[in-house]
Computed example of a mutant assay.
Amino acid sequence: MLHSVATKTLFDQRRALLAWTVSLVLLVAMYAAIWPSVRDQPAMTDFLDSMPPAVRSMLAMSGADMSTPVGYVKIEMLSLMAPLLMILYAVTTGAAAVAGEEDRRTLDLLLANPVSRGRVVLEKLVAMTVGIVLLAGVTATALLTEGNLADMSLPTGPVIAAMGHLALLAMVFGTLAGAVGSSTGNLTAARGVPAVLAVIAYIVNGLGPQVSWLEPFQKFSPFYQYTGHDPLTNGLSVPAVLVALGTVGAFAAVGIAGFRRRDVSA
């Protein structure tokens, strides 16, 4: 295991991944426990409908209805909380891939092994991807199992599709963090740039339907690839998957190229 950068990275992250897993399971359990009290409260849906269109567009995800399990999960989890947590994990992990090693003064020890710089970046991103997929899978399993216990029945296929798109959203920003960190060696930039762009992308996607000058840019937002076709209702979108994978591949290529051509801090 210690001869592979990817498996060594995952081994080092085992405690953090366990903590993330437990936290996500408990988060879903909390939302599932609240569902019965929300289900029979039409005032919640009326309150959402009374919000300004711009606010509703940011939070409601395709006109979600709080009185249904699917609508409840869209609004309470998938519109903000789940993307926030997954992107947080992805950005911190992607930033730590190279810039974190350099900040801790351990990168020179890693590069002293018979591995190329390109392989280091690629395997670090593979480890990040495995972690993201694991957390998305745990969230999907928790939604389906804990949801059933709280009489919050959700369709299996669309839940898996939604978690797949959520994983791709996290991979986009995590790979961007890796690219910035690999190209600059600056840990602050590797964390800050993706975080700022994620906020901008979220706003552009949310306000695109309401603000005319933002509408042309909405489809360029990774959040549009995540929610634009409403995966929890319509399932997987192949075009959105291909766009997200293309974006991840482009950021990975930038990170590899940037790391290969720069000097590493001692």
Rank of each mutant, 00 (worst) to 15 (best):
S67Y: 07
F47T: 11
W213L: 11
L214N: 04
I75M: 07
V199E: 06
S116T: 13
V130S: 09
I34K: 15
A127G: 04
G206V: 00
A150H: 04
T247M: 06
V254P: 00
L27Y: 10
P239V: 11
F217I: 10
R15A: 14
L78A: 10
D263A: 13
M66I: 10
L17D: 03
A19F: 11
R105I: 13
A19M: 14
L48M: 15
R262W: 10
V199T: 12
R191K: 14
S4Y: 04
R14K: 06
P194R: 00
S116K: 04
G137E: 02
V204F: 11
S37N: 15
T188H: 13
A252M: 13
M171D: 08
R56A: 15
W213R: 04
A177T: 00
D40A: 15
T21F: 09
V243C: 05
P36A: 09
D230I: 01
P209V: 05
D49P: 02
L107K: 02
S62A: 15
V73H: 04
L154Y: 01
L80C: 12
G206P: 15
T145Y: 12
L109C: 07
L232V: 00
V243Q: 01
S265P: 01
T247N: 07
N113W: 15
S37P: 01
P36I: 11
I87R: 07
V196P: 03
A33K: 14
L154T: 01
F220D: 10
V130P: 11
D230M: 03
E146T: 14
P52V: 13
T156E: 11
A198P: 01
E101G: 07
L207F: 10
I87G: 02
L169E: 02
V193I: 12
L207H: 06
V254N: 08
A250E: 09
S153W: 14
A167R: 02
E76S: 13
P114K: 05
N113D: 15
M51R: 11
G137S: 06
A170P: 00
P52I: 11
L154V: 01
D108V: 15
F220A: 14
G235Y: 02
S57H: 04
Y226H: 04
A16S: 12
E215D: 13
I200E: 07
P209F: 06
V199W: 07
S62W: 09
P42W: 05
V126I: 15
L18N: 08
W35N: 07
V55T: 12
S153L: 14
V264Y: 04
I203Q: 15
Q41I: 13
S67M: 14
L242Y: 05
T92Y: 11
P222T: 02
G174Q: 02
T175N: 08
V211S: 04
F173A: 08
G249M: 00
L26E: 05
R14A: 12
N186G: 08
S182R: 00
L88T: 12
R117N: 07
Y72T: 03
Q225P: 04
G63C: 03
D151F: 10
L59E: 08
I75P: 00
L110Q: 10
V130H: 08
